[in-house]
């Protein structure tokens, strides 16, 4: 069998071992075969990529955070039933069917992870970054969150406890970071510009106004 020889690095009893070893070629081979069998519309692939590359991303979550900072009623509803509230803004869908928002306070800092795979709130933050999917983040942030946060340049104050949320079911989490000082009177749009992706995962804090 050719794969015994050429693809000896792979576990050969798996069917994927018969595909080309180079991942880009492996994807291409699957796409071509599935298209030929009438199972995939290449234009649908372009549409999926366009949505996650250009339309859905951390700007959605940032708007949610900014509205929560600006409007106490919105914030109260968001913390009580985030799925419904973000759906009203159009942020519902795949990998965001059940959303919980967790609020940072001076007593508690929240951090999100998925140790078993890489679950992430896609409609609010888009596709997870490489570090979120890395073995190092998945393995370490549950055991040594402060050491991991330090690698992001984030040092938590003494006395602030850490709560790490391991996304083991279909609940998806968004951190509501603390509103920075000196942001009184800013519009929702100006506030949203301060909200970074990492601040909504808990590996960062919002920017402070210049």
């Amino acid at each position: 069998m050719p794969h015994d020889h050429h693809y000896h690095d792979h576990d050969h009893d798996h069917d994927h071992a018969v595909l080309p070893p180079e991942p880009a070629l492996r994807v291409k081979a699957l796409e071509t075969l599935l298209t030929e069998k009438g199972l995939i519309d290449p234009a649908a692939l372009d549409a999926i990529i366009d949505i996650y590359q250009n339309q859905v991303g951390p700007q959605n979550g940032a708007l949610v955070v900014a509205k929560a900072w600006a409007d106490p009623d919105f914030k109260a509803r968001l913390l009580a039933d985030a799925t419904e509230v973000v759906a009203e803004l159009g942020f519902y869908g795949r990998q965001g069917e059940h959303i919980t928002v967790v609020e940072n306070t001076s007593e508690r800092h929240n951090v999100i992870v998925c140790t078993l795979c890489s679950c992430y709130p896609w409609p609010l933050l888009g596709i997870p970054p490489g570090w979120y999917k890395s073995d190092a983040y998945r393995a370490r942030v549950v055991r040594e969150p402060r050491a991991v946060l330090a690698e992001f340049g984030l040092a938590l104050p003494e006395g602030q406890a850490v709560r790490v949320w391991d996304s083991t079911a279909e609940m998806r989490y968004l951190v509501l970071p603390m509103r920075p000082e000196g942001t009184e009177g800013l519009s929702v749009g100006e506030l949203a510009a301060l909200v970074t992706r990492d601040s909504m995962v808990g590996t960062g804090v919002p920017k402070v106004p210049a």
């Binding site: 995939i40 990529i49 570090w131």
Partner: peptide
């Protein structure tokens, strides 16, 4: 597992085939 590989300038799909792989899987 070493340090977390943080890249602040990482695009959504680092390689073109990453987006393709996601899309083929969803489709």
């Amino acid at each position: 597992d070493g340090t977390v590989p943080v890249d602040p300038d990482e695009p959504v799909f680092k390689d073109e085939w990453h987006g393709r792989a996601l899309a083929v899987t969803l489709a």
